[in-house]
């Protein structure tokens, strides 16, 4: 009896682990594979605009405007399209013009009302001096090439 109990608990634990793994895989495939939509997806009506969804792209250069009451407004762009985003709250450290961003919220007319802003960084790592030197010599390619991956 004792042994049988032990075996039963072990099988149960294993089943719970395997079961939750499978459940996670399924949920992942259901909704989370597409973590965010691009402005172009929005334009081509691929996005369920009635519900909450995530929008991803680059923060357009010179588009960030701080308004009163902690409200920030900016354009999220990809290679061809752009969407105006409004957000109230604290922005993450890496939120910068020209950097990747993923915002979550609802589309309100033509303005995306975000209640969460996540910064997406690219795969390039370098010291500030090197980045400076690259920009000066015109060899800068990091952000723009990887940014278009948002599509």
């Amino acid at each position: 009896m004792k042994r049988k109990n032990k075996r039963l608990t072990f099988v149960m634990i294993a089943l719970i682990f395997v079961g939750s793994a499978v459940a996670l895989v399924l949920t992942a495939f259901e909704e989370n594979i597409v973590f965010f939509f691009s402005p172009t997806d929005l334009e081509s009506k691929k996005t369920p605009t009635k519900q909450r969804f995530r929008l991803g792209g680059l923060v357009a250069k010179a588009s960030v405007k701080k308004q009163g009451g902690g409200i920030t407004q900016f354009q999220v762009i990809d290679a061809t399209n752009s969407v105006l985003v409004r957000y109230k709250g604290i922005l993450p450290d890496l939120f910068r013009e020209g950097q990747g961003v993923v915002v979550e919220g609802r589309l309100n007319g033509s303005v995306f009302q975000a209640d969460e802003v996540l910064a997406k960084h690219d795969e390039n790592y370098m010291p500030p001096e090197v980045a400076e030197a690259l920009k000066k010599s015109g060899q800068w390619q990091g952000i723009n090439t990887t940014g278009s991956k948002a599509q």
Binding site: A28, N32, P92
Partner: peptide, 16 residues
């Protein structure tokens, strides 16, 4: 948390 602004998201990499 400090970089993205969140401890966790269910994106494909983190979930897998």
């Amino acid at each position: 948390k400090p970089m993205w602004g969140t401890w966790w998201v269910w994106d494909a990499r983190l979930t897998s």
